[in-house]
Amino acid sequence: MRSYRILVCLLVCSLVQVTSSMAAEMTTKHEYMPGREKAIPHVSGDKEFSNTYQYWKDPESLKKAVDDGLMSHEMNFKDFRWMEKSMEGDMVLEEGLAYFNQENESGKSCASCHGEDGAELKGVYATFPKYNKRVNRVLTGPSQIEVCAKERLQRDDWGPDTRPNSLIAFYVASLADGATINVDTSSEPMAAAYERGRDLYFKRVGQFHYACSSCHTPPTAGNYLRGQRPTTFFGDAAQYPIYHFPYQLAGDDYSYVFTMQHQIRSCQQLSRMYQGKEGSASMTDIEVFIRASSNGYPMSIPVAEYNMNTDYLERNIDQ
Protein backbone atom coordinates (compact mmCIF):
# COMPACT_ATOMS: atom_id res chain seq x y z
CA MET A 1 0.00 0.00 0.00
CA ARG A 2 2.71 2.39 1.06
CA SER A 3 4.88 1.69 -1.92
CA TYR A 4 1.83 2.15 -4.16
CA ARG A 5 1.35 5.63 -2.73
CA ILE A 6 4.96 6.48 -3.30
CA LEU A 7 4.69 5.30 -6.88
CA VAL A 8 1.68 7.51 -7.55
CA CYS A 9 3.45 10.40 -5.91
CA LEU A 10 6.52 9.79 -8.04
CA LEU A 11 4.46 9.68 -11.20
CA VAL A 12 2.65 12.90 -10.40
CA CYS A 13 5.81 14.57 -9.28
CA SER A 14 7.69 13.48 -12.34
CA LEU A 15 4.93 14.77 -14.61
CA VAL A 16 5.25 18.13 -12.94
CA GLN A 17 8.97 17.78 -13.31
CA VAL A 18 8.67 16.95 -17.03
CA THR A 19 6.51 19.95 -17.80
CA SER A 20 8.69 22.24 -15.76
CA SER A 21 11.86 20.90 -17.34
CA MET A 22 10.37 21.47 -20.79
CA ALA A 23 9.64 25.05 -19.91
CA ALA A 24 13.09 25.33 -18.42
CA GLU A 25 14.67 24.16 -21.64
CA MET A 26 14.04 27.44 -23.40
CA THR A 27 15.22 29.65 -20.60
CA THR A 28 17.75 27.56 -18.69
CA LYS A 29 19.64 29.83 -16.37
CA HIS A 30 23.24 28.77 -16.25
CA GLU A 31 25.61 29.71 -13.46
CA TYR A 32 28.69 31.72 -14.37
CA MET A 33 31.81 32.56 -12.45
CA PRO A 34 32.20 36.33 -12.12
CA GLY A 35 34.29 38.55 -14.41
CA ARG A 36 33.01 37.84 -17.94
CA GLU A 37 32.30 41.48 -18.72
CA LYS A 38 35.90 42.45 -17.97
CA ALA A 39 37.42 40.21 -20.66
CA ILE A 40 38.69 41.93 -23.82
CA PRO A 41 40.17 40.37 -26.98
CA HIS A 42 43.70 41.57 -26.30
CA VAL A 43 46.54 40.24 -24.19
CA SER A 44 46.69 43.46 -22.17
CA GLY A 45 43.26 42.53 -20.81
CA ASP A 46 45.21 40.53 -18.24
CA LYS A 47 45.55 43.77 -16.26
CA GLU A 48 41.94 43.45 -15.20
CA PHE A 49 42.51 39.96 -13.87
CA SER A 50 45.97 39.35 -12.45
CA ASN A 51 47.84 42.65 -12.38
CA THR A 52 51.00 40.96 -13.64
CA TYR A 53 50.99 42.02 -17.31
CA GLN A 54 53.80 44.50 -16.73
CA TYR A 55 56.16 41.62 -15.86
CA TRP A 56 55.71 39.53 -19.00
CA LYS A 57 54.34 41.82 -21.71
CA ASP A 58 57.58 41.51 -23.69
CA PRO A 59 60.94 39.73 -23.40
CA GLU A 60 62.71 42.73 -21.83
CA SER A 61 60.11 43.12 -19.08
CA LEU A 62 60.24 39.44 -18.36
CA LYS A 63 63.99 39.41 -18.14
CA LYS A 64 63.94 42.35 -15.77
CA ALA A 65 61.31 40.72 -13.55
CA VAL A 66 63.33 37.53 -13.32
CA ASP A 67 66.52 39.49 -12.59
CA ASP A 68 64.64 41.41 -9.90
CA GLY A 69 64.00 38.05 -8.23
CA LEU A 70 60.25 37.90 -8.70
CA MET A 71 58.82 34.49 -7.88
CA SER A 72 57.03 32.57 -10.56
CA HIS A 73 53.63 32.76 -8.91
CA GLU A 74 54.02 36.52 -8.52
CA MET A 75 54.22 36.66 -12.31
CA ASN A 76 51.07 34.59 -12.78
CA PHE A 77 53.42 31.74 -13.89
CA LYS A 78 53.89 33.41 -17.27
CA ASP A 79 57.67 33.16 -16.99
CA PHE A 80 57.58 29.47 -17.87
CA ARG A 81 55.85 29.90 -21.07
CA TRP A 82 57.40 31.25 -24.15
CA MET A 83 61.02 31.97 -23.51
CA GLU A 84 62.81 28.84 -24.64
CA LYS A 85 62.36 26.96 -27.86
CA SER A 86 62.22 23.20 -27.62
CA MET A 87 64.68 20.99 -29.48
CA GLU A 88 62.49 17.91 -29.24
CA GLY A 89 59.68 20.03 -30.61
CA ASP A 90 61.90 20.98 -33.51
CA MET A 91 62.34 17.34 -34.44
CA VAL A 92 58.59 16.77 -34.39
CA LEU A 93 58.18 19.68 -36.83
CA GLU A 94 60.05 17.56 -39.37
CA GLU A 95 57.31 14.96 -39.07
CA GLY A 96 54.72 17.66 -39.70
CA LEU A 97 56.55 18.84 -42.79
CA ALA A 98 56.68 15.26 -44.08
CA TYR A 99 52.90 15.05 -43.88
CA PHE A 100 52.62 18.47 -45.51
CA ASN A 101 54.59 17.21 -48.47
CA GLN A 102 53.05 13.74 -48.59
CA GLU A 103 51.47 13.16 -51.99
CA ASN A 104 48.10 11.53 -52.44
CA GLU A 105 47.30 9.06 -55.23
CA SER A 106 47.12 11.79 -57.85
CA GLY A 107 50.47 13.18 -56.77
CA LYS A 108 49.09 16.21 -54.94
CA SER A 109 50.03 17.48 -51.50
CA CYS A 110 49.45 20.56 -49.36
CA ALA A 111 52.60 21.93 -50.93
CA SER A 112 51.02 21.77 -54.42
CA CYS A 113 48.81 24.72 -53.53
CA HIS A 114 50.56 26.39 -50.61
CA GLY A 115 54.12 26.39 -51.88
CA GLU A 116 57.21 24.44 -51.07
CA ASP A 117 57.51 23.99 -47.32
CA GLY A 118 54.35 26.07 -47.02
CA ALA A 119 55.95 29.27 -48.30
CA GLU A 120 52.49 30.80 -48.89
CA LEU A 121 51.29 30.09 -45.37
CA LYS A 122 53.78 32.26 -43.49
CA GLY A 123 52.09 34.00 -40.59
CA VAL A 124 48.54 32.80 -41.26
CA TYR A 125 48.27 30.66 -38.13
CA ALA A 126 48.39 33.87 -36.06
CA THR A 127 44.99 34.81 -37.50
CA PHE A 128 43.15 31.58 -36.64
CA PRO A 129 40.39 30.79 -35.85
CA LYS A 130 38.67 32.75 -38.59
CA TYR A 131 35.51 32.78 -40.62
CA ASN A 132 35.73 30.86 -43.88
CA LYS A 133 33.14 32.33 -46.19
CA ARG A 134 33.14 29.43 -48.61
CA VAL A 135 32.22 26.79 -46.06
CA ASN A 136 30.29 29.36 -44.00
CA ARG A 137 31.86 28.32 -40.70
CA VAL A 138 34.40 29.63 -38.22
CA LEU A 139 37.40 27.33 -38.54
CA THR A 140 40.27 26.64 -36.17
CA GLY A 141 43.65 25.92 -37.78
CA PRO A 142 43.14 22.15 -37.50
CA SER A 143 39.63 22.44 -38.95
CA GLN A 144 40.91 24.41 -41.97
CA ILE A 145 43.50 21.68 -42.48
CA GLU A 146 40.76 19.07 -42.29
CA VAL A 147 38.70 20.94 -44.90
CA CYS A 148 41.64 21.22 -47.30
CA ALA A 149 42.65 17.60 -46.81
CA LYS A 150 39.16 16.30 -47.37
CA GLU A 151 38.05 18.50 -50.26
CA ARG A 152 41.30 18.93 -52.08
CA LEU A 153 43.34 15.83 -51.34
CA GLN A 154 40.52 13.33 -50.79
CA ARG A 155 41.93 12.50 -47.38
CA ASP A 156 38.92 11.81 -45.20
CA ASP A 157 40.98 10.62 -42.28
CA TRP A 158 42.92 13.80 -41.46
CA GLY A 159 40.41 15.24 -39.00
CA PRO A 160 41.41 17.42 -36.04
CA ASP A 161 41.70 14.42 -33.72
CA THR A 162 44.29 12.66 -35.89
CA ARG A 163 48.04 12.56 -35.79
CA PRO A 164 48.69 13.92 -39.32
CA ASN A 165 46.39 16.87 -38.65
CA SER A 166 48.01 17.80 -35.32
CA LEU A 167 51.52 17.49 -36.68
CA ILE A 168 50.67 19.57 -39.76
CA ALA A 169 49.02 22.17 -37.52
CA PHE A 170 52.20 22.28 -35.45
CA TYR A 171 54.23 22.77 -38.61
CA VAL A 172 51.96 25.42 -40.11
CA ALA A 173 51.92 27.25 -36.76
CA SER A 174 55.72 27.26 -36.75
CA LEU A 175 55.56 29.23 -40.01
CA ALA A 176 54.01 31.99 -37.92
CA ASP A 177 56.69 31.94 -35.23
CA GLY A 178 57.21 35.53 -34.10
CA ALA A 179 54.07 36.83 -35.83
CA THR A 180 51.74 38.87 -33.66
CA ILE A 181 48.48 37.12 -32.89
CA ASN A 182 45.61 38.86 -34.56
CA VAL A 183 42.26 37.11 -34.32
CA ASP A 184 39.82 39.59 -35.81
CA THR A 185 36.70 39.70 -33.65
CA SER A 186 35.61 43.14 -34.79
CA SER A 187 32.84 41.96 -37.11
CA GLU A 188 30.30 39.14 -37.39
CA PRO A 189 30.31 36.23 -37.19
CA MET A 190 33.59 36.32 -35.24
CA ALA A 191 32.33 38.89 -32.74
CA ALA A 192 29.48 36.60 -31.72
CA ALA A 193 31.79 33.56 -31.65
CA TYR A 194 34.06 35.42 -29.22
CA GLU A 195 31.16 36.23 -26.92
CA ARG A 196 29.77 32.72 -26.97
CA GLY A 197 33.23 31.31 -26.29
CA ARG A 198 33.72 33.74 -23.43
CA ASP A 199 30.41 32.72 -21.91
CA LEU A 200 31.30 29.04 -22.19
CA TYR A 201 34.64 29.78 -20.54
CA PHE A 202 32.90 31.30 -17.51
CA LYS A 203 29.98 28.84 -17.42
CA ARG A 204 29.93 26.42 -14.49
CA VAL A 205 29.73 22.81 -15.69
CA GLY A 206 30.67 19.25 -14.85
CA GLN A 207 30.65 17.27 -11.64
CA PHE A 208 32.73 19.80 -9.71
CA HIS A 209 30.59 22.63 -11.06
CA TYR A 210 33.67 24.57 -12.13
CA ALA A 211 34.08 26.99 -14.99
CA CYS A 212 37.28 27.13 -17.01
CA SER A 213 37.70 30.48 -15.30
CA SER A 214 37.47 28.87 -11.84
CA CYS A 215 41.05 27.79 -12.33
CA HIS A 216 42.19 30.38 -14.87
CA THR A 217 41.37 33.51 -12.89
CA PRO A 218 42.64 34.40 -9.40
CA PRO A 219 42.67 33.15 -6.68
CA THR A 220 43.37 29.83 -8.40
CA ALA A 221 45.42 31.37 -11.21
CA GLY A 222 48.74 32.44 -9.77
CA ASN A 223 48.54 29.87 -6.99
CA TYR A 224 49.64 26.29 -6.71
CA LEU A 225 47.03 23.69 -7.49
CA ARG A 226 48.92 20.84 -5.92
CA GLY A 227 51.94 20.69 -8.26
CA GLN A 228 50.27 22.54 -11.08
CA ARG A 229 50.35 26.19 -12.00
CA PRO A 230 47.20 27.48 -13.60
CA THR A 231 47.40 30.96 -15.06
CA THR A 232 45.08 33.51 -16.62
CA PHE A 233 43.83 32.90 -20.16
CA PHE A 234 45.90 35.69 -21.71
CA GLY A 235 48.96 35.10 -23.87
CA ASP A 236 49.25 31.33 -23.67
CA ALA A 237 47.66 30.59 -27.04
CA ALA A 238 50.80 32.07 -28.56
CA GLN A 239 52.59 28.76 -27.97
CA TYR A 240 49.94 26.42 -29.29
CA PRO A 241 50.16 23.79 -30.72
CA ILE A 242 52.67 22.84 -28.05
CA TYR A 243 55.06 19.97 -27.58
CA HIS A 244 53.67 18.15 -24.60
CA PHE A 245 55.82 15.14 -23.80
CA PRO A 246 54.91 12.81 -22.18
CA TYR A 247 51.32 13.76 -21.64
CA GLN A 248 48.62 12.43 -23.93
CA LEU A 249 44.89 12.15 -23.87
CA ALA A 250 43.98 8.59 -23.05
CA GLY A 251 44.03 6.36 -26.10
CA ASP A 252 45.38 8.96 -28.48
CA ASP A 253 48.74 9.42 -30.06
CA TYR A 254 49.47 12.90 -31.30
CA SER A 255 53.17 12.29 -31.15
CA TYR A 256 52.97 14.50 -28.10
CA VAL A 257 51.68 17.55 -29.88
CA PHE A 258 48.79 19.29 -28.20
CA THR A 259 46.69 21.60 -30.31
CA MET A 260 44.56 24.13 -28.45
CA GLN A 261 41.61 21.82 -29.00
CA HIS A 262 43.44 19.01 -27.21
CA GLN A 263 44.37 21.34 -24.37
CA ILE A 264 40.75 22.33 -23.89
CA ARG A 265 39.72 18.67 -23.83
CA SER A 266 42.50 17.84 -21.46
CA CYS A 267 41.31 20.52 -19.02
CA GLN A 268 37.74 19.30 -19.37
CA GLN A 269 38.90 15.82 -18.50
CA LEU A 270 40.95 17.08 -15.56
CA SER A 271 38.01 18.94 -14.09
CA ARG A 272 35.31 16.33 -14.77
CA MET A 273 33.49 18.18 -17.51
CA TYR A 274 31.97 16.37 -20.47
CA GLN A 275 34.63 16.51 -23.19
CA GLY A 276 33.79 18.27 -26.44
CA LYS A 277 34.84 16.94 -29.82
CA GLU A 278 37.74 18.69 -31.54
CA GLY A 279 36.45 21.18 -34.08
CA SER A 280 32.83 21.13 -32.85
CA ALA A 281 30.98 24.44 -32.73
CA SER A 282 31.29 24.97 -28.98
CA MET A 283 34.95 23.91 -28.87
CA THR A 284 35.71 26.26 -31.76
CA ASP A 285 34.05 29.15 -29.92
CA ILE A 286 36.12 28.45 -26.80
CA GLU A 287 39.26 28.52 -28.95
CA VAL A 288 38.20 31.81 -30.55
CA PHE A 289 37.92 33.28 -27.06
CA ILE A 290 41.28 31.93 -25.87
CA ARG A 291 43.24 32.85 -28.99
CA ALA A 292 41.71 36.32 -29.22
CA SER A 293 42.79 36.79 -25.60
CA SER A 294 46.34 36.57 -26.93
CA ASN A 295 45.89 39.26 -29.57
CA GLY A 296 48.96 41.48 -29.62
CA TYR A 297 51.29 38.77 -28.32
CA PRO A 298 53.97 37.16 -30.51
CA MET A 299 53.64 33.49 -31.46
CA SER A 300 56.41 31.26 -30.17
CA ILE A 301 56.61 27.81 -31.78
CA PRO A 302 57.96 25.21 -31.05
CA VAL A 303 57.79 25.44 -27.29
CA ALA A 304 57.55 22.54 -24.87
CA GLU A 305 55.00 22.22 -22.11
CA TYR A 306 56.64 24.19 -19.30
CA ASN A 307 55.34 21.84 -16.67
CA MET A 308 58.39 19.65 -17.18
CA ASN A 309 60.45 22.09 -15.17
CA THR A 310 59.53 21.42 -11.57
CA ASP A 311 62.45 23.14 -9.88
CA TYR A 312 60.10 25.71 -8.49
CA LEU A 313 58.39 23.12 -6.34
CA GLU A 314 61.62 22.68 -4.41
CA ARG A 315 61.49 26.27 -3.29
CA ASN A 316 59.64 27.20 -0.16
CA ILE A 317 56.50 29.09 -1.05
CA ASP A 318 54.89 31.19 1.63
CA GLN A 319 51.13 31.56 1.45
Binding site: G206, Q207, R272, Y274, Q275, S282
Partner: peptide, 25 residues
Protein backbone atom coordinates in the same frame (compact mmCIF):
# COMPACT_ATOMS: atom_id res chain seq x y z
CA UNK B 1 39.37 7.77 -12.58
CA UNK B 2 35.90 9.11 -13.28
CA UNK B 3 34.29 7.36 -16.30
CA UNK B 4 34.03 10.14 -18.93
CA UNK B 5 30.81 8.74 -20.38
CA UNK B 6 28.99 9.51 -17.12
CA UNK B 7 29.76 13.20 -17.27
CA UNK B 8 26.89 14.22 -19.53
CA UNK B 9 24.57 14.01 -16.52
CA UNK B 10 26.01 17.41 -15.48
CA UNK B 11 25.84 20.71 -17.37
CA UNK B 12 28.37 20.81 -20.23
CA UNK B 13 29.68 23.10 -22.99
CA UNK B 14 28.01 21.46 -25.98
CA UNK B 15 25.42 23.21 -28.17
CA UNK B 16 24.04 19.95 -29.54
CA UNK B 17 23.87 17.64 -26.54
CA UNK B 18 21.20 17.88 -23.89
CA UNK B 19 23.78 18.49 -21.17
CA UNK B 20 24.47 21.88 -22.73
CA UNK B 21 21.03 22.99 -21.57
CA UNK B 22 20.95 21.33 -18.14
CA UNK B 23 20.33 23.74 -15.27
CA UNK B 24 22.94 24.02 -12.51
CA UNK B 25 22.54 21.65 -9.56
Amino acid sequence: PYPPELLDQYPCHSYELECGQLPPP
